[in-house]
Amino acid sequence: MRFSFSEIEALLPGYLSGDVSDKNRAIIDEWRSESPENETIYLESLKAWEAMILLQEMEQFNSFEALKKVSSRLSERPSSRWWVTIQRVAAILVLPILVFSGYVTTQNFSMKKLMEEHVVMQTVSSRQGMVTQFSLADGTKVWLNSGSELEFPTRFAGDIREVKLKGEAYFEVFKNEKQPFRVNAKDLNIDVLGTSFNVINYDDDVQSEVILVEGKVSLTGDDEHAEKEYGTMHPGQRAVYHNDIHKVDTEEVEVDKYISWRDGNLIFRDDSMEEVVKRLSRWYNVKIVINDPEIKSYIYKATFRNENLNQVLNLLKLSAPIDFRIVERKALADGEFTKQKIYLMKKKS
């Protein structure tokens, strides 16, 4: 009886896991013996099947703990005759050797320092209106929103993987329980093992926000507020940290709205015009001024996909009683340009 390759492929996982009927096992056994090529495919499948388990197995070994143990044993010396001879010579030459080893030690120290400093900090920033996506040394993926900046080491040494964020970023953290991942956002630290979440931390804002998509994160104060524990978050929650009063509020939210920027979309769902303006001005790098205070409390609902600023403003005008006026960029004395300014006002009926 002949079987197509796709039928064989469908049976392979069961065969590999042992969860297979005798009949199907016989089919695979026969297929394997038919040609060396089949056997190769089988072996490759087996190895792919085991890859994740092997990885899991490796992860249970803690090299940092082991290194401590090993380091304490490194002063052991193999005893041998030449060593006895050396000791005799050393007894005669004690002074010069002391001097020499003193020299070597200082040399070593500076070498060590040099190597430790070798962990170079690096900064990636995202230009206005652009989303930058990249991976860190540990496999963690980062989406950096328009006008944001992330500082991180070229490799993660030590007990913790720490990065520093200004602006907004979305993280998909590679799980590594031995080395927790930490995002530092002003006074707030976000500690995670492996999970996906969004952080908003602009310098001109008095608050930092964390939106958790999956997994679990815990929030703590930074060094100065080290004793502060703000508790853990659950998926679908948004935490707002108020920098002035060092307090955290959490609420349940629709996470899509907060992570849509990764795909170049701006989604507003029952957001106040004040919030809309804040996000638009960051996205398009313009200054938007609300002339009528009344406008601030308008509630707005919209999704923008790759629209330019003019299109967005015209959509605003169509869908809300709002009008706008644009003041173009001006050259300053030093050759720099001012930001484009947009004034929003109530539409005159």
Binding site: S63, L74, K112
Partner: peptide, 18 residues
């Protein structure tokens, strides 16, 4: 050089154990 040793240790330890 202990730093080099530590580096090699941390890099390969878990896979050597597995």
């Amino acid at each position: 050089d202990k730093v080099v040793f530590d580096f090699i240790f941390n890099y390969y330890y878990s896979s050597l154990c597995a």
